[in-house]
Simulated scan of single mutants.
Amino acid sequence: MRRSIRALAAAVLALPLALAVAPSAHAADPTTMTSGFYVDPNSTAKQWAAAHPGDGRTPAINASLADTPMARWFGAWSGTIGTATGAYAGAADHADKLPLLVAYNIPLRDSCGGHSGGGAATPSAYASWIAQFAGGIAGRPAVVLLEPD
């Protein structure tokens, strides 16, 4: 358990180094840099609505889900993380919208409860992953939620 806590502390302490990118003048409020939040045109809800235009539920699904901005989660399943976050942030930027991204790969995640285990294998692997995550976003405006659970 002590080793897990030390590894987690090391990952958290490495985070500022991984994100050591000079913030822009708007870093405190990225909402001022775009025309609103990004709605992912490839979300499951959008895909369902497009595939079922005649379904009576489609207008409600569009209004309550498909047309509502929400965060996209990125983790070990995302492939090359810098490419994934870059594509998402780039699509949002092209639409002049602000993307919401969730970084979900902290090492030893949920090492006690086991309900959402996984994450990077080591603190140094996480530091590399989160640096690539941020690198994909580059200088584009974005809101990043770190490990929300």
Rank of each mutant, 00 (worst) to 15 (best):
L98F: 11
D93A: 15
G113L: 10
P99C: 13
A87L: 09
A84N: 08
A91M: 09
D110L: 13
A103Q: 04
P107D: 02
G86Q: 07
A91F: 02
C112I: 12
Y88C: 02
K97M: 07
A92P: 01
A92R: 00
N105V: 03
T85A: 09
R109T: 05
L101C: 12
L108C: 07
G113I: 11
A87Q: 15
G113N: 15
G82N: 15
D110C: 14
L98C: 05
P107E: 01
I106M: 12
L108M: 07
L108N: 14
A91H: 01
S111N: 08
Y104E: 04
A87F: 10
T85F: 11
L101N: 00
N105M: 09
G90M: 04
P99Q: 06
A91Q: 08
A87M: 07
Y88S: 00
G86H: 04
L108P: 02
G114W: 13
C112W: 12
Y88H: 15
L98E: 01
T83G: 13
Y104S: 06
A87W: 10
A84C: 10
L101F: 08
D96W: 03
N105G: 03
G86M: 09
G86Y: 07
G82R: 13
C112E: 15
A92F: 02
V102G: 03
T85G: 14
D93W: 08
A87I: 05
D96A: 08
L101W: 01
C112L: 14
A103W: 04
S111Y: 15
R109M: 13
G114Q: 12
A87Y: 13
H94R: 10
T83L: 14
C112M: 14
A89L: 09
R109G: 05
G113C: 06
A95D: 14
D110W: 07
H94T: 13
G82L: 11
N105S: 10
L101I: 14
P99W: 06
P107L: 04
G114N: 03
A103N: 05
R109L: 13
Y104Q: 10
C112F: 13
N105P: 05
V102L: 08
A103S: 14
T83C: 04
G86K: 03
K97R: 15
I106N: 00
D96F: 11
G90V: 03
A91N: 14
Y88K: 02
K97G: 04
L100W: 11
H94G: 10
T85E: 08
A95T: 04
G114V: 13
H94M: 06
G113P: 06
A89D: 02
D96P: 03
T85M: 10
Y104W: 15
Y88G: 00
G82M: 12
G114S: 09
L98Q: 01
A84F: 06
T85W: 10
G82I: 05
Y88R: 10
I106P: 02
G114P: 12
A89F: 07
C112Y: 14
D93R: 08
P99N: 08
Y104H: 14
D93T: 10
V102R: 01
G114L: 05
S111E: 12
D96T: 11
P107I: 01
P99R: 01
D93S: 11
A103R: 00
N105H: 10
A91L: 11
H94W: 04
A92N: 03
G90A: 11
L108F: 13
T85D: 07
A84L: 07
R109V: 10
L100N: 06
T85N: 13
L108H: 08
A89M: 05
G114C: 05
V102D: 01
S111H: 14
